[in-house]
């Protein structure tokens, strides 16, 4: 739920990066954090396991500056991707204004992507959202790897709802900001 604080002249939105384990959700936030000016970002907070897998969430507050006298702030979150943490994903998804589904384009991860996407749809529906109207974009990550499935195949299996989708290699930054732009605009359009 976007928060418009007229008194404080602030608008807040929450964007969640969702997807199967090791698909590159945290890498997206790390790249964004490394590339935007320091005056527009807060500290990147990561709550991870001893093996540097996301345990709870990553959190990156971004400040877009003043627009018509309002300070625009986005809070970016990732969820833990491992199957075990399903209920934690529900908790982090609570109150999100938009979701980036980060799919791993590797051939052998297709079932994981589909399972994660089904779970996302169920969780949003359980929160009373209409999945088909919900601000959602997809990112096909790891497209630079040789075992990656071609985009038309990913479109056919993963993007059946035909939302905006972007090819990416989060580790090099390709497609990261394109994805962020798209979801940010969808969220703002819901104001």
């Amino acid at each position: 739920m976007a928060l418009i604080n007229v008194a404080a002249r602030e608008i807040h939105g929450k964007i969640v990066y969702y997807g199967p384990g090791l698909s590159g959700k945290t890498t997206n936030l790390q790249y964004i954090h490394s590339r935007i000016p320091s005056n527009t970002k807060g500290e990147l907070l990561s709550i991870e396991t001893e093996t540097e897998r996301t345990l709870f969430f990553d959190f990156l507050p971004i400040d877009l500056g003043k627009v018509h006298g309002f300070t625009i702030r986005f809070h970016l979150y990732t969820v833990p991707g491992q199957v075990l943490y399903e209920r934690t994903r529900v908790a982090v998804l609570n109150g999100a204004d938009g979701v980036v589904f980060v799919a791993d384009a590797s051939r052998d991860r297709l079932p994981d992507n589909l399972q994660s996407l089904r779970e996302l749809a169920q969780n949003l529906t359980a929160q009373g959202k209409r999945f088909l109207d919900y601000p959602l974009v997809m990112q096909y990550n790891k497209m630079d790897l040789p075992q990656g499935l071609p985009t038309p195949v990913l479109d056919r299996y993963i993007n059946t709802v035909k939302v905006p989708r972007f090819e990416a290699s989060a580790i090099t930054g390709k497609g990261v900001f394109e994805t962020l732009r798209a979801i940010s605009k969808l969220v703002v359009n819901k104001l």
Partner: peptide, 20 residues
């Protein structure tokens, strides 16, 4: 505000970012 924010998004979230 929403319309102007979209212009800001384009400016701030450029493809390679705009790290200082």
């Amino acid at each position: 505000v929403g319309k102007a924010t979209i212009d800001t998004i384009d400016l701030l979230f450029k493809d390679d970012g705009c790290s200082d």
